[in-house]
Every structure is written in C-alpha cells, then in structure tokens.
Design a protein around this nucleic acid. Sequence first.
DNA 1: ATGAAAGCGCTAACAG
DNA 2: CTGTTAGCGCTTTCAT
Lengths: 341, 341
Amino acid sequence: MTKDHVTLKDIARIAGVSTATASLALSGDSRVNVKTRRAVEEVAKRLKYVPNEIGRSLRAKKAETIALIFPNTTHFAFSHPYFVQLLEGITEVLVENSFHLLLSTAPSEADEAAAYDKILRNRRADGIILWPASIRDRNILRIVESGYPVVYLGKWHHDEVVTVEREEFGGAYKATEHLIKQGRRKLVMISGPLDYQVSIERVEGFKRALQDHQILFESWMVVEKDFSMEAGVEAAKELLESGHRFDGIFAANDRMAIGAMKGLQQAGITIPDDVAVVGCDNIEMAAMTSPTLTTIDQPMREIGAIAARKLIALLNREDIGEKQTVVPSQLIIRESCGAEA
Amino acid sequence: MTKDHVTLKDIARIAGVSTATASLALSGDSRVNVKTRRAVEEVAKRLKYVPNEIGRSLRAKKAETIALIFPNTTHFAFSHPYFVQLLEGITEVLVENSFHLLLSTAPSEADEAAAYDKILRNRRADGIILWPASIRDRNILRIVESGYPVVYLGKWHHDEVVTVEREEFGGAYKATEHLIKQGRRKLVMISGPLDYQVSIERVEGFKRALQDHQILFESWMVVEKDFSMEAGVEAAKELLESGHRFDGIFAANDRMAIGAMKGLQQAGITIPDDVAVVGCDNIEMAAMTSPTLTTIDQPMREIGAIAARKLIALLNREDIGEKQTVVPSQLIIRESCGAEA
DNA sequence: ATGAAAGCGCTAACAG
DNA sequence: CTGTTAGCGCTTTCAT
C-alpha cells in the first residue's frame, strides 16, 4: 500500500535539525550553514522527499494552479478539433512555470452559477482561463467582472478585461474577400450559433466584405448552424433546396466547411468549379479533403501560450503587456476556393 | 482587488458559535441544534461562504482530485482526435463525484522521472489515470507499480494493475478479416510506432487474421508510421513505390487511413475498387471523407468514464468490479472497404 | 546559524 | 448540543 509520505518533519528529525532549518536549507537560504544544508539535502534525497504541495499552498495562500474553465456547453466546446492545440499551448507555458492545470466544467446549466463561484473561491486555482460562452451567459459576466485573475479567450465589451482574441472579423473578411477576388459574387455563409460573439464577428466580417465590394447582403445568405460536420451537410442541403443560387461559401469553421463540401458533392456539385468553399480554423483535416480546403489559420497553440503567460504575469503582479492581444489570422490558400496558391 | 476570502472562522464569529460547531452545522451533522444550524447556514449563505478546499484537503489528506497524466510524448498524445472524447468521459464522472481533474505532462524526457515522482507524492492528486506510453518508458513502469492508485489505459503485462483497454487485437482482427471477406488477399497494414503496446497488438491482430485465412505474412506488409495524416500520405507513397502489389489496407488509426486514401487518390488509384481501406478509431471525420471510411469504433468517451469510475472506487476502497475491463470495439462499415453496409 | 512558535483553514476527538 | 483543543505540512518571523 501507499505508505505514509515522508514529511519535512521526518527530514528534520533524521538530519538532526529543526523543521525550520530543514525548510530553509531545502530552499537554499544563505543563512543556513553550508554543511547543514548539505546534510539536509542528502537526507531529503535519500528519502526521496517531495514537499506536500497542499501544505505549502495552504501556507502560501497560493495554489500554483490555474483553471481552464468551460461554460456549460462542454460538449460543444470540447469538440473543437483545436481544443487540443489550445491545451498544448497552455500546458507548455505552465510546465515552464511549475504551475498545474485544472480542467473545469460546470456540471449542468442549473449549477453553473454555483460552480463558478466555487472555482472562484475554493482556492483550488489562482486564476482562470475562460473559454468563451454564449453572450447570454450571465455567469460568465460575473466571473469576468469579479476581479479574480481571468484571461478571457475572446472579445469582451470593455477593455479592463484581459483577453486573447483571434482576429475573427478580419479573418472572415479576408476569407470572403478572397472568394470575391476569385470572381464569386453570389456568396453565402454558414455561421455558428449567433449567440456567440465569435459568430457575430465572423458574420460582420462577411457582411463588410460584401459591402466593400458592392454586393447586396440579404438575410438568407447566412445560415446558422452548430459547428458540427453534420450541420455543414445539412446547411448545404438547405441552401440547395432554398432555390437561391450561390457560387461561394464561407463557413465559420472547417468542420462545417467539410460537411458542406460533402453535402454539395453528394448533390453532384463540383468544388470549386460550381461552388468555391473557404473554411476557418485550419484543422489538420483541411489539408486532406478533396479538394483540399482553403481556410483561415487560427493559431490556437499560440493563443493558449499567450493566455497562460498573461495569467501568470497577472498572478505575479508583473507587467502583462497589452491587455488585449489579438492574434492575427492568416489565409491558407488550397484548392477549394479555386485560386492558384 | 480580490478581497480576503470569507473563512469558517468568520462564519463562526458572526453566527456566534465556535468554528467546530459551524463546521458541523454546515456539514449537516445531526448533533447540532436545528436552530443553530439554520443560523449558521444563513450566515454562510449571506457571506457566500465557500470552504477553502486547500485547508480541507490538508486536513483530510485527500485532494479530491485525480490527475490525467501523459508521458513525455505530449504532442503525440494530445493530437489524438479522440483525446477530447476521453476527457469528456472522465470529466462527466468526476463532476458527478465532485472530483477535480488535473492535467499533467512531464516537462521533458529528462525530467520525466522526477515529474512522475512529484505527481506521485506532492499530494496534489489522489490517483492517476495514465495514458499509455512507449513500452520502453521505465517511468511508466515505476508509476504503475508504485502502489499508487492508478488506472492504466491499455494492456499491462500482469494483472494486478487496474486497466481499461480497448480491444486492440480483436479490432485489428475484425478489420483485417473484413477486408479478406471482401475478397482482398493482398493486404498491407499501416502501423503506429512499434514501441507502443497498442501498435504491437494491432499488428498481431492483423497477422492472425491473415494466418487464419491462409495468407502468408511478409514483413514488408507492415509499414511503421507515427499516427499522423501526413504519415498516412507518405505510407501510401512508399507502398506504391515499393512495387509490391496490394488491394487492401488496414491502417492503425483513422488519421493515417485518411492520409493514405489521399496519397492513393493522388496517385490515381480508386478506392475501394483498386484498393480497399479500413481505419481505426471512428473519428468524426471518417464519415465525411470520399469515400467514407470503414473503421473500428473505439468508444473513448466510455473508456474515460469507466476509468474515472474505477479510480474513484479505488480511492473510496469500494469494489471496482473486474480489474481489467476490455471495451469491445465495433466494425463500422462505410464505403472505403467496398462492402455493402 | 539555528530553533521555537505561530498560523494558513479546516475537521474531529474529546469534554463538558 | 456546543466549545476547546489539536494537528494536517509547510514557511516565516522572532528569539537565541
């Protein structure tokens, strides 16, 4: 069985010093005699002493842990293919700084408020990286405005909040404009849920690009879907059945773009000849579809790393640099848009 | 700023009782007078008291947290599309049981041993769910055999260890046999890295299926790759260039299968007419490729949930049921194998 | 240079 | 029924 753990007390006793001295010695404090220090270190090493971080945390009133938390829409959030990249970016930085990562989800919509409150105050984490939620989510509002150290992964409506954002509007604009430059003028967009800020911005980018090129926007040009591949297939079918003509699609993420391509191809439509498609995210799969998918690259790994660095700086009361960081997006031209790369 | 947190002491003082009573009251202990309890509860609620879990943990010598840890191959491990499903399964169960999830990676190969040791003993987590690593990884061995509560997500070489395994051998066997039943007899396999137990088993399943159908196995029939889509493309090219003839491919995961299909199609080969392909994992994308990918479903969400339940049972010294759980895999027939579903 | 003592926030054994 | 006390493991004054 897991036998009892070696504590500082044990080390002190065996090394023949007090716990205070042992503590100092192990932290390399210059006040303690070199010989004593060596002795303590030797014992610690021999017994494979590892400090109990719970004790340390209680004392220091710091958890050395940050929480990555998700609104109730867990399933939705987790399913993003690039969630994993975000995690990689975050953990990379945390490991460098000896921080731990707590992954947190609200159990259910009902408990959501309580759950956030708990995270805020049970002292398990020192700060939070917050995945964007529906703009209708009041709990998010509370957490962001609580004064607790939070980095929000999206745009916030006032600039006291520390955020790392993707260039949503700009990305959508670039994608749409690219389609227009390929000579497509009958464009439609497959959007994510419109109660999400990211969706709103991407739609705005789409609209603006149309406007800047004298293309009249009409409301049927945006279909609202849920970000899944299956939804992309549906969207394509609905658009085809609607009777409206279109020769270009901007999809708010690659999963829907891929689904849409599938749906179109099943209906005998050729991509990009009949309809050009541009996605968003640049997931690994985008390079594997037929035709390969032109898309907007969103460097999630970098976003994760920046967010983690900001949060740690915040906790250490160091300079965090700019409060809002916008990570630029980049158009990745492949085959589905009909352009030569 | 984050003002000081409300502690039990505050509650006790304001409610006019001792901290002991306050504690008892809040835990709903029947010994305390109903009226007192109500009073305490009222104060706690009013001040939005949330217990400091660090204090509680120190006292209870339990972290109420489990760690999901990864060997040094983070990037590799994280990149599995179904990693997210595993997470979902785990968090679902943890939330039910009010446990927290710590995500842990070793900083670098060099620090790996130390990092595990720390996780084992710094008391931040009560137990570990361990993602399989290279069979050469001695640190994994140490952690699994440490007696610490561990659930290992793969097969282990002796049966004291609690594991949740996918049916690797059986899945590969089914996939291969399915190809044979479609009349394919010149089969090849694209394997993952062969220092991984999962890879070894899948290759064994492949070989056995050949053997059972009187097909001679030769070593060139297995190409070892790294699980990525890009690697699948390469594998296809290498196989084509090798000059060996083949009419069926079993790929050890869907990403490589998708890459391989891409590679074959680029070379003008028709799937499934010229070459049939079966993958493994049943990732979302498998239903979207052209042709859609026949594959082996690995219910990662369920695996995560089972692992979490087992670990919690282990921690509570409850009955964990069978020590080794093998989650059955299932053949999902789509288009790439040339069978009618 | 070292040790004694206090205390982080909590719970539980023991008294009353 | 409630309060006193002790202590989880650690760090940090403050004495010596």
